[in-house]
Amino acid sequence: MLEVKGLSVCYGTRPVLTHVEFSLASGGVLSVLGNNGAGKTTLLKAIMGLVRPKTGEIYLNGIKIPLHSRKESARIFAYVAQSPRRCGLSVFESVLLGRRPHLNGRPSARDYRVVEQALSCMGLNNLAFQRLNCISGGELQKAAIARAMAQEPQVLLLDEPTSNLDVRNQMEVETLLCNLAKKQGLMVIQVLHDLNMALRFSDRFLFLKDGRIYKMGERDVVTANVIHDIYGVQAKILNVEGISIVVAV
């Protein structure tokens, strides 16, 4: 269980997040939603300790996480950026980097096994020795998630993991994340703009507005009124063969 209590962040004197509180159980997938500048990415960074919060504490299974300890934090949280960077490392080398928080000197047999499992889980075995600057956007995103998995985190934080992907890759990545959460008891927190993806693959929703929690809860909090208040658009939520779909009207 991850608990975020009273988290506030300021950039200079400007408050970006104000008293954010929520909890997430093991195996849960939380989608953080809101318009641009609402503080979604800052929330992810503050949870990981990449941004120093003004106030607030984070507990994992009832134990307070020391955010100042980078190595400690890197063993609990893994982060996937919105647009992973292309470089000359091979997919295998980049995933092996995920073992850095656990390494003492050279990689051990266990480190290699964890990397192999992460590659296998993401279906990247055939691309293991391709360079990151020679693979497609979807494969790059999967390689970034594989690296995050190799970190063996308890909480996986993703900043718009599907924003650069086509529909097929969006579905693949979200299905993988959902399966990871359910099978390995991982807590997944993802920033999303696509409400339909969020509705389909998340079980908890957190709407941010001007750095404050506007609404939080399960599927029932995603209503036409909330969407209008957050995004300023009229929307309908339709049910097609048991799947909820948001349509802007």
Binding site: K45, M48, R70, Y79, V80, A81, P84, L97, A144
Partner: peptide, 20 residues
């Protein structure tokens, strides 16, 4: 050397790997 490898990724990702 390992930290420099991590810096080949996005800077935030390198930080999330524990690199100062």
């Amino acid at each position: 050397a390992w930290d420099m490898n991590a810096l080949l990724l996005e800077e935030e990702e390198a930080r999330s790997l524990g690199v100062n």
